[in-house]
């Protein structure tokens, strides 16, 4: 009698254990499904947020070259393209290094020099100087002073990982090259912020990763005056 009772009890215990195990398995299954649902939602949020970060309409400044992404100087047979960021120190030294030679090449119709002001270094600025300065350069193009303003930006370049000049200071710099109230309003409105994204996309599509990136007639060259001079000279021989 008592033996049978304890047998029954043991059987009941086994069943109970089995049920508990089953229940735990079901909980685990639901938890796993919940995990995948959360990840799916997270991915969808990413796609959504990305589309809100992108501007639908792109304002393109007047007088741009090639699909609205750059500004050209000169009309020589050689095509020199420069992707440059106003926050990038190497771009600054490249700019100062090549300034006189470029002026000469433009004057003598040796080369057409296209400058693409990409804005890919916001991560190295505490106040998105990369994007704001490039957008301000677009405003300068409205006033027909893109190249002058561009150079002034390099002269006033902030150090990396600092708070760069704010919009008021960008406007002040504009005044030094003769830009007026329209420029001021344009910078304040962030009129060409969408344009900087447009340039960045072109930069990405050309599989570029860093600034400065320099091309001569579509061929990538090292960003130095020496390599540019060599490339331009090589063309003369052919």
């Amino acid at each position: 009698m008592s033996k049978r009772y304890s047998q029954k009890q043991a059987a009941a215990q086994v069943v109970r254990k089995q049920l508990a195990k089953e229940k735990r398995r079901r909980t685990q299954l639901w938890a796993a499904l919940a995990v995948f649902a959360v990840l799916l939602v997270a991915g969808a949020v990413g796609v959504l947020v990305r589309s809100t970060q992108q501007d639908d309409t792109v304002n393109i400044p007047p007088g741009t070259y090639a699909d609205g992404v750059g500004f050209a100087r000169g009309d020589g047979p050689k095509l020199i393209e420069i992707y440059s960021d106003y926050q990038c120190p190497i771009c600054r030294s490249f700019e100062t290094q090549t300034r006189d030679t470029f002026a000469q090449w433009v004057a003598t119709d040796t080369a057409k020099i296209v400058f693409y002001p990409v804005a890919v270094l916001d991560g190295y600025s505490k106040n998105e100087y990369s994007t704001r300065s490039a957008a301000a350069a677009g405003c300068a193009a409205d006033g027909g002073k893109f190249h002058q303003y561009s150079y002034a930006l390099y002269v006033n370049q902030p150090a990396e990982n600092t708070e760069g000049p704010d919009n008021a200071e960008l406007i002040e710099t504009g005044k030094t090259v003769g830009l007026g109230e329209d420029f001021e309003q344009c910078v304040k409105d962030g009129k060409y912020t969408s344009w900087t994204q447009h340039i960045n996309e072109n930069f990405e599509e050309r599989k570029l990763k860093g600034t400065p990136s320099v091309f001569v007639d579509g061929e990538r060259v090292e960003a130095s005056l020496a390599s540019l001079m060599a490339a331009v000279a090589a063309d003369d021989e052919s």
């Binding site: 990305r50 970060q53 992108q54 890919v120 960045n200 990405e204 990763k209």
Partner: peptide, 8 residues
């Protein structure tokens, strides 16, 4: 904050 940069 900058998903375009993330993509790059």
């Amino acid at each position: 904050g900058d998903l375009a940069e993330s993509g790059r």
